[in-house]
Design a binder for these strands. Structure first.
Length: 224
DNA sequence: AAAACGCACAACCGCGAAGGC
DNA sequence: CGCCTTCGCGGTTGTGCGTTT
């Protein structure tokens, strides 16, 4: 087990450390991460504690294979949000941003033709990915505004928990939005907004089937 | 049987955002 | 308004384990 120059523990967490962290959060609650190492008696940095809690110790975290529905949702949300793993994970109960990110990088990315050396280069060259048509919305606040999020039939509201905070920055996202910064008010605007969102969320059945077959072959998703 | 390789995932790092003073 | 601290996120690396040779 390595330590950094200031003697803070790094590397894999032990059961004892997990227990200390859980007990601490159980006692004091989440947040105030800078105090957690001290209160828990852990020789870990706050970041490490936070990450461990969020990714592994939090209640209701789901481990194991991704279901078909989950993959479907990830693909669609990634198409919509890009690499906003925390937002995507927020829509998939029990999954963490790290889980989703790892799954995407090891399975889905591959199946989209980004594999081996090419994948490595693409990962390194993230600037290039920003030049694609991925919509990268910034978190926004719409004070006093309503935002109409289209729903997919038979699915949970995929957007109700999207964090919306404010910024005044102009973005490509804004330019693409048919009902820029406000609610669609006329029937035409509503239709246009629905078409816009539908287009973003559209992933053909063929695309998904191909993905599922490939992923299944790699052995990750066994329980469809 | 063991070394080499590849994959999956846990963990770390760096940076930007947010908030307090 | 600027500085400082803390938080949270995405990208990247490290490590362990299974598979192949």
């Amino acid at each position: 087990m390595q330590k950094n120059p200031r003697g803070v523990r790094k590397g894999t967490w032990t059961k004892e450390e997990d227990i200390l962290l859980m007990e601490c959060i159980d006692k004091y609650g989440e947040g105030k991460w800078h105090q957690v190492p001290l209160k828990a008696g852990l020789n870990r940095c706050r970041k490490s504690c936070r990450l461990r809690w969020l990714n592994y110790l939090r209640p209701n975290i789901k481990r194991g294979c991704f279901s078909k529905d989950e993959v479907d949702l990830i693909v669609r949300l990634h198409k919509l949000l890009g690499n906003k793993w925390s937002l995507i994970a927020g829509r998939i109960p029990g999954r963490t941003a790290n889980d989703v990110k790892n799954f995407w990088n090891t399975h889905v990315g591959k199946n989209l033709g980004v594999d081996g050396e090419r994948r490595k280069k693409n990962v390194m060259n993230t600037k290039n990915s920003k030049e694609t048509n991925i919509i990268r919305p910034r978190a926004r606040t719409f004070n006093g505004l309503h935002v109409t999020w289209p729903r997919e039939h038979g699915k949970n509201d995929a957007f109700s928990n999207v964090r919306i905070t404010s910024t005044t920055e102009n973005l490509d996202y804004e330019k693409q939005k048919p009902f820029h910064n406000n609610v669609a008010s006329t029937p035409e605007e509503v239709d246009e907004s629905i078409r816009w969102w539908s287009n973003l969320l559209e992933t053909t059945e063929d695309e998904l089937e191909n993905l599922f077959e490939d992923v299944q072959q790699t052995g990750k998703m066994s329980e469809w």
